[in-house]
Design a protein around this nucleic acid. Sequence first.
DNA 1: TGACTATATTCCTATATAGTGATGCAGTCA
DNA 2: TGACTGCATCACTATATAGGAATATAGTCA
Lengths: 129, 129
Amino acid sequence: MKKSIRTASGARALRAGANSEMTEEAFGLIAARFRALAEPMRLRILHSLGEDEMSVGELVEATQAGQANVSKHLTVLLDAHLVARRKEGLNVFYRVADETVFDLCDAVCRSVGERLAVQHTAVKRFAGR
Amino acid sequence: MKKSIRTASGARALRAGANSEMTEEAFGLIAARFRALAEPMRLRILHSLGEDEMSVGELVEATQAGQANVSKHLTVLLDAHLVARRKEGLNVFYRVADETVFDLCDAVCRSVGERLAVQHTAVKRFAGR
DNA sequence: TGACTATATTCCTATATAGTGATGCAGTCA
DNA sequence: TGACTGCATCACTATATAGGAATATAGTCA
């Protein structure tokens, strides 16, 4: 059983276990998705697209970034299959194509938030209140 | 209510919504975690650590990477608070400090796997079976 | 057709970081 | 103490990519 990305259906894909044979390619594919989410600007864009689809121009306004920059980030997200495009006249509307990104971000947000809370508490305690 | 990373407790952090006020800092923190997971080599390391804690030397052997490289990746994971260290004599043992990384990877693995399956089916169909 | 607009792309610079070999350093053992 | 081991760090190269300005391209409308 090569191409073990299918083992995902069994859960615990990354965690090493009995049947877990991760191929080099699988690590690369997973890392690629994380890389697509590893830029604050792209998270801003996805955040903006959370409500509804938006044109590039609207995204430029929403993110306060340069047009070329937004366009390039959208290309990255498109290549990662995280967003989808729809052309309408002169405009191109983008929308989130994989809703799981929100779950990922929520999970990260919770985890990081918890850690910061713990650290904050520790510092407060160290400071004597 | 600045510092809205706390809104994570309400879920749907990234998805724009009523109370969702994402600060620049929050996007940066979330992106930083994704960045730590955005390298195949680091995923390999976490994968190896899924079973049990391991020394740097064991990880070098398990990953077939250079010692300096493994050490640097471990530093990145440590800075991201994804692993923790324990020194014992000459050895340093690392372990996963945030179990949620496995959930993240599982989610990504499922999502990417589904997409690939869909694409595969589409190509097969196009090829006429 | 030509002027105009929205988006994509190209070219550039600056920065980050993966990988490697050499070295530093702390801990162990004779 | 000195030799040795395991890990971290430094110095370096190669590569990737974020950002911006300029330009190209595609679609619209007169």
